[in-house]
């Protein structure tokens, strides 16, 4: 009973905080609202007995929102907590599409005859998840690891101000390198 009440309170908090992201008039408040929404969902996942996933969701998303706040200050060139803003386009169509999608998903949720539960949850969910990841599902994690590594490389390549092609030319043969501040051993 207590967990039911807690689930509904968290559901209301998560959805309202999610809506607040696009209602509040500053980007810093929006990122805090999104963090609150993620914390609500993370706690709901904890209530669904998935301790590891719930904690990972909360920790990761709170850090991500902190990074996002830094980005806003960098790109907006202002104090985002103090600067009111409303930058939307095609609001009416977006609202119609999102309401339509919600009605469709909710109808599917209510109409579909969901099957009964198969199997029972393991006694220690986190431990069995760990065993699964280090055993039969190792390939999934290995693939995710490669994707993450590729993301790091691609992110640096995209975001870097000056790459080796800027320094050494397209054929990488230009010497000395075209550096904004010359220096280094032997120069």
């Amino acid at each position: 009973m207590v967990s039911h009440v807690a689930f509904w309170v968290l559901a209301v908090v998560a959805v309202l905080a999610g809506a607040a992201v696009f209602i509040v008039n500053s980007m810093a408040r929006a990122s805090y609202a999104l963090a609150v929404s993620f914390i609500g969902v993370g706690l709901q996942v904890l209530l669904l007995q998935q301790n590891y996933v719930g904690v990972v969701t909360i920790l990761m998303m709170v850090m991500e929102m902190a990074v996002m706040a830094v980005y806003m200050i960098m790109f907006m060139g202002m104090n985002p907590a103090l600067m009111p803003m409303s930058m939307v386009h095609d609001k009416r169509h977006a609202l119609a599409v999102s309401i339509g999608v919600f009605v469709l998903l909710a109808a599917g949720t209510l109409i579909v005859p969901w099957p009964t539960r198969r199997g029972t949850p393991p006694a220690d969910v986190t431990m069995t998840l760990g065993e699964e990841l280090m055993g039969p599902k190792m390939l999934v994690m290995a693939a995710v690891g490669v994707v993450m590594a590729a993301t790091i490389v691609a992110g640096v390549v995209l975001a870097a101000h000056q790459t080796r092609y800027d320094r050494f030319g397209d054929d990488l043969r230009r010497r000395p390198a075209d550096d904004p501040q010359p220096g280094g051993v032997g120069r």
């Binding site: 959805v15 992201v21 980007m27 996002m68 386009h89 609001k91 949720t109």
Partner: peptide, 27 residues
Amino acid sequence: VLLVAAALFSVGLYGALSQQVVVMVMM
């Protein structure tokens, strides 16, 4: 649970479609 998830998904969809700032679209 799925109704709450659908509500979150729809609110996110509204934001992704309507917002102009790239960071807000990502949100």
